[in-house]
């Protein structure tokens, strides 16, 4: 089975700075990591390869240093990877990002399955996976927590929704976005880390993927971030520090009164 795993490099810390002019993220000085939710997509791809054979290719759009994310994916078991990096790609929203990734996948051509993480922990949209599938006009399913069965021309998968699990049969080639419940991502082995270090990662630009330049980057994005603000998180609530049994009981009574006051009970 030929598998493509699109991944995103995200900032490690939560103290991210935003560019007040463009409204996009300032990535300088912040340790980049693979989006934690993409590790499940990588692991599922590698597990499938180990089970039934095939190859897994990591794909990422980002700055040059996103090569590190691809190398880490290879260290986890991906066979190779491709970086999409160009000034023209910068500032893309989910529409323009999914366009570029889908063009790259068209260029790769031969694939049976695309596996994405549920969403990235920075942008937190979950829109790029369904977007890629729509650009490619292939079936897709979101929030997959289990691949139940691999059939000749389809997959049987389990999809986690609010009140239970749907069992779906989906025609291949297709795209799945997977949730954390699906597996336990492995740590890269030393041997694979060494291997990853040696692998040359091709870097593709707009011409390599025959992209329509008007669909790229900030210019090609239908949405605009116009303002960034830091929400006030402190609610200045009531804080009780009971010192003995009686005070604890009084505190719990106040808590119950709070609930009654809010008509919760």
């Amino acid at each position: 089975m030929k598998i493509v795993v699109p991944i995103k490099q995200v900032p490690e810390t939560n103290n991210v700075k935003m560019d007040p002019v463009t409204g996009t993220m300032v990535r300088d000085g912040v340790e980049p990591i693979i989006n934690p939710l993409d590790l499940y997509a990588i692991e599922e791809g590698v597990l499938l390869k180990e089970r039934i054979g095939g190859e897994v290719r990591a794909l990422s759009m980002g700055p040059k240093k996103a090569i590190l994310a691809i190398k880490e994916a290879i260290a986890m078991g991906c066979d190779d990877g491709i970086l999409l990096s160009d000034r023209a790609f910068a500032g893309a929203d989910t529409w323009a990002t999914s366009y570029v990734l889908s063009q790259a996948i068209k260029k790769i051509g031969d694939y049976d399955l695309i596996i994405c993480g549920e969403r990235a922990t920075d942008g937190d949209t979950g829109q790029v996976g369904p977007g890629i599938a729509t650009w490619l006009d292939i079936p897709f399913a979101t929030y997959i927590n289990k691949i139940v069965e691999i059939r000749e021309n389809s997959l049987v998968v389990e999809r986690m929704v609010e009140d239970g699990y749907e069992i779906l049969e989906i025609e291949t080639p297709c795209l799945l976005t997977v949730v954390k419940e699906i597996n336990y991502p492995r740590l890269p082995s030393l041997r694979r880390k060494q291997l990853a270090r040696q692998i040359e990662i091709p870097v593709w630009g707009p011409a390599d993927i025959e992209a329509d330049t008007k669909n790229l980057g900030l210019k090609g994005s239908p949405t605009r971030v116009v303002k960034i603000s830091t929400p006030q998180v402190t609610r200045n609530g009531k804080l009780l520090t009971p010192k003995n049994e009686n005070e604890i009981e009084a505190a719990v009574d106040q808590l119950i009164e709070f609930l009654q006051g809010k008509e919760i009970i």
Partner: peptide, 23 residues
């Protein structure tokens, strides 16, 4: 922004060639 809305909307935004803001 349910499992349904967050699945149908991003595909629809691509089809209709328009922007979508999540959640």
């Amino acid at each position: 922004a349910t499992s349904t809305g967050r699945t149908v909307a991003p595909a629809l935004a691509i089809r209709c060639n328009t922007g979508l803001t999540a959640d």
